[in-house]
Structures are given as structure tokens and as C-alpha cells.
């Protein structure tokens, strides 16, 4: 299979990688770059655990091809806090809310949930409970029953709105 050299940005840093045409974005991130924050649970686009943001939009990295990342800006859970100017050891308000509200049990769905919540709140900074459920509708969690996840997203929305002064 023909390999290509790909240039792209992950969490603000530029990377080059050699990829095959059928390599998935999740393989590129997890196996080539060692960024294992994006989880693979189903591998076929049915659970949202592998969600990352490409150019700010949520993408299921298990079902996206690595080559589609060419020249793109990718944000993974590892870079989320820094992307809003947080120092090492500090959390993004959505991460903080997930921790504070007990929205994380095993944590396997959490990176995907948090990034999906970010995409949701970027689009709709003041969602209702139903809109949060809707927005996270494609992200599965076997542990929490979603109650505290939705609580956390709503609480984070408040914090973010206050920070933005709106």
C-alpha cells in the first residue's frame, strides 16, 4: 500500500507522520503519536468514545481516515485544557465539572464525552437539559446512566458563559 507523509497539527503542535491510505485517525493518534486519550470502544462509529475535534468539529476518529487530517488542526483530550490557556495541572471548565459532579466512573467514555460536550457548547452556549441529552446522544457510557454527565455539562455551560461575560 502506498505510504504518504502527512503534515498536520495536534494540540497546537505540528507533526509529520508516514501513513497508509487505510490508516484511521484513531490509529494515527493512539499508535503513532501515543495519544491514547481518544479511546476505541466499538471501532465502527457507534459509541463516540474516540471523538476528537478536527477544525473544532467532532469527528469519530475510529471511522475517519488519517489522510483526511492533512493540514488540519486536531484537538484531543490531552490538549483541551491548554487550548483555553490553562497551565499544566489545570483543567478546562468542562473537565473540572466532570470531576466535580461525579460524571466520571471508569472514565473510558469521558474523553469522547468531554470533547463532544465542548463541540456542543461551542455551538450552543446555553443548552437545556434536553439539548445536552440530544447533543451527547451518540456517546455511550455503560457506567453512569448519564445523569451526572448532563449535570456536569450544564454546570460547565454556566461557568463558560460567566467566563465569556455573557
Amino acid at each position: 500500500m502506498k505510504k504518504q507523509v502527512l503534515t498536520f497539527k495536534v494540540n497546537g503542535l505540528s507533526h509529520d507522520a508516514i501513513v497508509t491510505p487505510n490508516m484511521t485517525l484513531s490509529e494515527l493518534l493512539r499508535e503513532e503519536l501515543g495519544l491514547t486519550g481518544a479511546k476505541e470502544s466499538c471501532g465502527v462509529g457507534e459509541c463516540g468514545a474516540c471523538t476528537v475535534l478536527v477544525e473544532g468539529k467532532p469527528v469519530l476518529s475510529c471511522s475517519a481516515l488519517a489522510i483526511a487530517a492533512r493540514d488540519k488542526e486536531i484537538l484531543t483530550i490531552e490538549g483541551l485544557a491548554a487550548s483555553v490557556g490553562k497551565k499544566p495541572g489545570e483543567l478546562h471548565p468542562i473537565q473540572q465539572a466532570f470531576v466535580d459532579y461525579g460524571a466520571i466512573q471508569c472514565g473510558f467514555c469521558s474523553p469522547g464525552m468531554i470533547l463532544m460536550a465542548k463541540a456542543l457548547l461551542d455551538e450552543n452556549p446555553g443548552p437545556t437539559r434536553e439539548e445536552v441529552q440530544e447533543g451527547l446522544g451518540g456517546n455511550l457510557c455503560r457506567c453512569t446512566g448519564y445523569v451526572k454527565i448532563v449535570d456536569a455539562v450544564l454546570a460547565a455551560a454556566d461557568v463558560l458563559r460567566k467566563e465569556a461575560g455573557t
Binding site: E40, I77, L80, Q96, F98, G107
Partner: peptide, 23 residues
């Protein structure tokens, strides 16, 4: 008290390693 769960910060930042992440 409602304190943060053990390991929650590492899970929220993607730092936690599960066996499926090992190589």
C-alpha cells in the same frame, strides 16, 4: 462528603492508561 472520585482528574485529561492502551 461529595468529593471527586479517585483518579477522576487523570481520566478527564486522558492520562489514565487502561490495559487496552498498553504497548
Amino acid at each position: 462528603r461529595r468529593l471527586p472520585a479517585y483518579g477522576a482528574v487523570n481520566k478527564a485529561t486522558g492520562a489514565t492508561k487502561y490495559s487496552v492502551d498498553m504497548c
